[in-house]
């Protein structure tokens, strides 16, 4: 009697393993929620350039008429970038190792940034 050749049983087993792993993979993919997207958006939304340009302008204008500059900057920031911006430059008292103190505030509803710098 011819013996049944069962050397290829592993093909069936492999089929089982592959299909079960696909099944679990599908469950994992199905679990992916909105979290990934909003988190990624949060990282992209960080207003690095806005904060940098506010800083740069404040330091560059530090000798101008600050009240007018503040008003202009606050309304431009709100109009163009939807951010509340304010700053103050104060002369440091005599005897300190720096001349001026900058206080900068920036808030666009998602990111708030406060800085106090001296030079």
């Amino acid at each position: 009697m011819a013996r049944l050749n069962d050397d290829a049983q592993w093909i069936v087993l492999m089929g089982f393993i592959v299909s079960f792993s696909l099944f679990f993979l599908a469950i994992v993919v199905n679990q992916s929620t909105v979290v990934g997207q909003t988190t990624a958006e949060g990282v992209l939304e960080f207003p690095k350039n806005d904060i940098r340009s506010v800083r740069e302008e404040v330091i560059a204008c530090s000798d101008a008429d600050m009240d007018k500059v503040l008003k202009d900057m606050a309304s431009i920031a709100m109009d163009r970038k939807n951010a509340v911006v304010s700053f103050r430059i104060t002369q440091a008292p005599q005897g300190l190792p720096f001349n001026k103190t900058f206080e900068i505030h920036y808030n666009n509803g998602v990111t708030a940034y406060n800085e106090t710098a001296t030079y």
């Binding site: 709100m78 509340v84 304010s86 103050r88 900068i104 505030h105 808030n107 509803g109």
Partner: peptide, 15 residues
């Protein structure tokens, strides 16, 4: 929508 508290001048802005 947000309410901003400015620590520099102590002003509160509602947007």
């Amino acid at each position: 929508w947000f309410i901003d508290t400015d620590p520099v001048y102590g002003k509160i802005t509602a947007v």
